[in-house]
Nucleic acid binder design. Sequence first.
RNA 1: GCUCCCUUCGUCUAGAGGCCUAGGACGGAGCCCUCUCAAGGCUUAAACACCGGUUCGAAUCCGGUAGGGAGCGCCA
Length: 468
Amino acid sequence: MTIRTRFAPSPTGYLHIGGARTALYCWLYARHHGGQFVLRVEDTDRERSTDAAVQAILDGMAWLDLKQDEGPFYQTQRFDRYREVAQQLLEQGHAYHCYCSKQELEQMRADQMARKQKPRYDGRCRQRTEPVAGVAPVIRFKNPEQGRTVIHDLVHGDIVFENSELDDLIIARSDGTPTYNFTVVVDDMDMRITHVIRGDDHINNTPRQLNIFKALGVTPPEYAHLPMILGPDGTKLSKRHGAVSVMQYREDGFLPEAVLNYLVRLGWSHGDQEIFSREEMVALFDITDVNKSASAINPDKLLWLNQHYIKQGDFMQLGAELAWHLERIGIRVDDAKKLAAVVGAQAERAKTFKDMAAASRFFFEEFTDYDAQAAAKNLNVETLPALRDMQSRLTASDGWSAALIHAALEACVAALGVKLGKVAQPLRVAVSGGTVSPPIDITLEILGRETVLKRLERAVHHIESAAR
RNA sequence: GCUCCCUUCGUCUAGAGGCCUAGGACGGAGCCCUCUCAAGGCUUAAACACCGGUUCGAAUCCGGUAGGGAGCGCCA
């Protein structure tokens, strides 16, 4: 049997981090077993579904590179099929028309709540044989009243529900459109889904769906209900928690590999291993190793992983990501080699590309002002001799490389009889405007002789004009 | 209220009756390295929700309690 999984988001918002993990696990399970991964858009709620949300979900999946083998299928394009199956259920006596008004139902619920009972439809239209004039009925599924339904859940084990706890759910609205619990069953059946992997907020829906499968005479898929993902404070994920959309993670400077690696370890583990390449995930992932309890997002760990992938990555390729972020702050760069060099120099000191771009401005454009404190301390009459000395050594240098610059630095230190820091730090402020940069020799190499000499001249002027 | 789910360091987790004086990772603390910032190395603090039971032996099995969560829609 070929394994077939599906990811079935409803397009009422962007792809958030919880949905992304569900998609990842579905994708991983299918890949691991050499099966297929289906993407299905559950857009039956026309009020809340939007094209923009559909696009946002597709974009998120593309960024994470979770490619579907089939789809996207849209439920709004399958209404005829749902109508057909609902009709079948009606004819076979597994469903019936219900003419109760919304007010009537609300009253029923209120009464039940008042009696401290679980609100549920009492089946009062089950026996009705004649239509009610002027009322467009809904179709309800006739849920078994006796016995129990058990989910053989792949992560939770058996979960038992008394059928008497379930009520007759609406499968088609009075306008004829189908509802969620019904479309899911029809689709999972038609798309030959073998494994439904979804959030455990759906556990309570599963027995209803199982009963519909039974009425249809179809073997249901296997189920695996994933624990929820919580915000950093352990409460429900919300916009308050910052990056809710996966695309926001790109904006914030994260790499998809890092997000994926972070997500795969949230609720799943393989011994003590923390770092997983895509290939390793596929090879090692198993749904039975998934945890049962909800987990809180740990932003620091994501940051750590992101830096790990920055350090491990191909600097040439990562240069493109840096360029993307530089552009966001108004700097256009197309020198791929320089970008790669900057990534290489900054990898150890940036946790995100957003931070890296901000810290790398001076490599690509002239800075406007010196950091006042840094200049006061490092660009003054005391440091002027070192700056002058380096100026002449660098002007005279036969070539331009970190090694040659380093040699010049050592010579300067020896000639002036000072510590390396007494030369490096003023130089750093002179070329970067501030006190933080990669090692000074590498920084100068990337900047290039022309820029370095120009900025040294600027520093000397700065000191001289201040001294006057 | 009813039904269902969950419970190991701050966080993510390892752990499937003796390997556990509970391991790893992030974060924290300290030290080392050092031209800044980092990165790196070493060291370190920190948890089995609680109460009973089963057993020679329980983080692991069973029961209860407490706490947290989800669902109970002509939403998905």
